[in-house]
Design a protein around this nucleic acid. Sequence first.
DNA 1: GACTGGTCTTGATCCAGATCAACTCGCTAA
DNA 2: TTAGCGAGTTGATCTGGATCAAGACCAGTC
Lengths: 257, 257
Amino acid sequence: MSKDRVVKLADIRANCQNCSLLQLCLPMGLAEGDLEKLDSIIQRRKPVQKGDFLYHMGDPFKAVYAVRSGSFKTFTVSPDGEEQIVGFYLPGELMGIDAISANHHICSAKALETTSVCEIPYERLEQLSLEIPGLQHHLLSLMSQEIQHDQCKLMMVAKLPAEGRVANFMINLSERFKQRGYAATDFNLSMSRNDIANLLGLAVETISRILTHFQEDGILKVERKHIEILNLEQLRRISSQCPSVSQPSKDSSSHTA
Amino acid sequence: MSKDRVVKLADIRANCQNCSLLQLCLPMGLAEGDLEKLDSIIQRRKPVQKGDFLYHMGDPFKAVYAVRSGSFKTFTVSPDGEEQIVGFYLPGELMGIDAISANHHICSAKALETTSVCEIPYERLEQLSLEIPGLQHHLLSLMSQEIQHDQCKLMMVAKLPAEGRVANFMINLSERFKQRGYAATDFNLSMSRNDIANLLGLAVETISRILTHFQEDGILKVERKHIEILNLEQLRRISSQCPSVSQPSKDSSSHTA
DNA sequence: GACTGGTCTTGATCCAGATCAACTCGCTAA
DNA sequence: TTAGCGAGTTGATCTGGATCAAGACCAGTC
């Protein structure tokens, strides 16, 4: 294999055009030429190691980030130092758009594993979305989706009992993995039980108990971080509440849980 | 008073230029000429009566609405017919932007009292925000704010005990009233105890008990729908958790609870 | 006035899930 | 190999808030 060929491969991987997440991510639906324009402002950064921060709460808002591989959690820290998880982000999902109005990040983003991201300078993105037909709409649409999902999460936490929340969480992850071309019923959790508990407003012990309970009932197979969904229908029945999670819209990136 | 003068007064009232909510609402920060452009696409509709719907869940998405006076609740209905409140909307707040991505309304909007709204056809708004400098950014900013507030609500429900949620709810209302030029510590609730309980994920009885408890402790004066905040500091202490509610950003319309 | 239906309050009881405490399982490190 | 530590599980107990039930308070309406 010549050096040239190696370079070319690296080059291919680093373009939106050849990214497997094209249909999910920000550039979704753009024409060839417009895609290149967008591509030209995007910066690929070196991977973020597990436990490292992509940005901190309070940092000035410069860019939004698309996850390329791996996963993140975002969280705020309350005055008394307690962490509150806001969401988990998977490949193709956009992080940081909640910072537009405040002009600084309102939560911190920490890598749950080794991850790579595309950095999209926000000012240039706004300029570009004045020029590229459809980009503005797509951006607004992405944000509207984020609102929809947040409202859905709110309803889940306000209305569902513990089992329903865990079921809902698993279904949500499953659907997001499916959209990304991964197995829908067999995956690894990159987040700890603690993080899940935190997001769902429950105690760690409760998560643990419910997972073993689901396992006893043949709904899930749980082995440390590895989850296998054995009875999706049952899981849905337990979760059933939140319409927009069980009926994802056609264009559905940035499904955050 | 001549007929001309009457017409002129009516005309004045029906323009963004002369609206008392100008500094809070969608047209915030626009230049004179641009303001007129925006104004020209906005339709003022006849008032919506208490209990009537502005739109229903599932309706095709045509427009967003700015509350001019009065208040709304938005809610979804789950498969089993149960209502889940998503938020309450006060004058100057924008309703319906959560429908952009799905292209139909994902919740219903019901007037809590006699209200008037400005209807802003969404397609024309998108067109206009390609032309008017700053409008695109403002729109994105508004949506980002909505995300921020939803995340804040989520944290509140996931983390705070019942008293904290009620305290938080009251502070949030108080601040929104204040921004609108109403008294911050003396106001009327347009929503029922039931609606509040529903939003906060609590039982009506719990709301009732907490309100009497707050009254006994001299934190609030409660008389049916009328609320007087006697000890805002204490209320804050009970609520203290959710940073972005207690530190509203400079540009802060669409504070929804 | 008295009658009715909705909203709100108050009290008594119960239970889902928190909390506390002990233990197990992997993993890393020496 | 053992020691040590963080993450996860499991059990026992406790409690905040739900639920059930009964009144109280209004706003209409006849």
